[in-house]
Every structure is written in structure tokens, then in C-alpha cells.
Computed example of a mutant assay.
Amino acid sequence: MAVYPGTFDPFTSGHRDLVARARVMFDRVIVLLAVNADKQPTSEATARAGRVREAMPAAWGNVEVDTSTGLTTAYCLRRGATVIVRGVRTAADFRYEYQLAAMNERLGMQTIWVPSRPHLAATSSTVARAYRSAQPAGPSLNAEK
């Protein structure tokens, strides 16, 4: 079982693509909305979790959505996960993710990185939030069903 953690504010087409790819690599994938006190999301975790669930096709029966506070590794160990899945878009992402992976490994959890597809690499939650606030009636960068 794999855990794909993030704040998913919002859940983008890049996030959805990573879940689609992870779900064929692992028997089960938990999309974990990590509640991070250092971040100020635009909505509560339960609302974001609901939107993530809505973005998942019904046929993806091996994908679960959950929320958690605290360390992701503690959640993973408690749930019996074997790996954390993280997306990487850029070299800067990789540097940051490498540090997280090193810490997670010391805490007993392996991390694998899945590179973003080139056409999705420019999409991030930060960009999607900025676009949404600048274009209130425009098309969405959020995950399509």
C-alpha cells in the first residue's frame, strides 16, 4: 500500500495524474490530505477531501482518500503502508523532496518519486489558486472527472 500525501489546495490535474499512475503500481493508494498548521488552506481538510473524492472515477476502487494531522510517516506506519509517493516537477522540487525522503527513511518509511508528465509540470496548487483568484469566471485548472 502507498500513501500520497499533500495539502491538495486545490487538487489539480497533475495530482490526479499521479494518483492514476500510482494506482497501477500499488495494490492500494491512500490520498492523504495532510493537515499542516504552517499552511493556511483556502478550505477545511474535510471539504478538500470531498473534492478529491469527487475527482476520482468510481472505477478506481483501490484509491482511498483520508485526512490526518501529525507526521505522515506515523500515519503510514499505523496504516501499514510500505511507501510514500511524491510527485516531482522540477529540480527545486527534487531538492526539497530529497530532504523529506531522507527524514522519512530515518523514521522507517521509504519514498518513491514520480516525475510529472511534461504537459502538467507547470501546474501546481499555488498556480491554480492564483489563476482562480485572478479569473473567477474562467476555466479551472483543477482535476477533471
Rank of each mutant, 00 (worst) to 15 (best):
A130T: 10
T73L: 00
G108W: 01
T126I: 06
V85A: 09
Y75F: 13
R95M: 03
G80C: 05
D93Y: 05
A121Y: 14
G70E: 03
V83D: 02
L100Y: 04
Y131A: 07
S133L: 14
A58D: 15
T72P: 07
G61V: 10
T69M: 14
S116K: 09
T123Q: 03
S140F: 15
Y96F: 08
V127C: 05
V114T: 11
S125P: 04
D66G: 04
A137S: 14
P136G: 15
T73S: 06
W113A: 11
G70D: 03
R79W: 13
V114G: 12
G70K: 04
V83M: 03
L77A: 08
N62Q: 10
P115H: 07
D66Y: 08
G87W: 07
V83W: 00
L77K: 13
F94Y: 00
V88P: 04
T123G: 09
A101K: 01
R129G: 08
P57H: 11
Q135H: 15
A59E: 14
N104S: 00
G108M: 06
G61I: 09
M109P: 08
A59T: 13
T111G: 02
I112K: 11
Q99R: 08
N62V: 07
A91P: 10
S140I: 14
A92R: 01
A91S: 06
Y75G: 07
Y96A: 12
A81S: 12
S140K: 14
Q99F: 14
D66M: 05
A128Q: 08
R89I: 00
L77D: 09
Y131G: 07
A134K: 15
M109Q: 02
L71W: 08
R117D: 04
A81M: 10
S125G: 13
T82N: 12
A128S: 09
G108Q: 02
T82I: 07
A91G: 06
A91K: 06
T90A: 02
S68D: 13
A128M: 12
A58S: 10
Q99H: 12
S125I: 02
A92M: 03
T82C: 08
S124Y: 11
G80M: 03
I112V: 10
G80K: 11
P115D: 09
S116G: 13
T90K: 12
Y131D: 05
P139N: 13
R106K: 00
V63R: 01
V114R: 09
R79Q: 13
A137T: 13
T72A: 02
L100R: 04
A59W: 05
A122T: 15
A122Q: 12
T111Y: 04
A128D: 08
S140N: 14
G108N: 05
F94N: 02
S124P: 10
G80Q: 10
I84R: 02
R106Q: 01
W60H: 06
R79P: 09
R129H: 11
A81W: 04
T82G: 13
S133T: 15
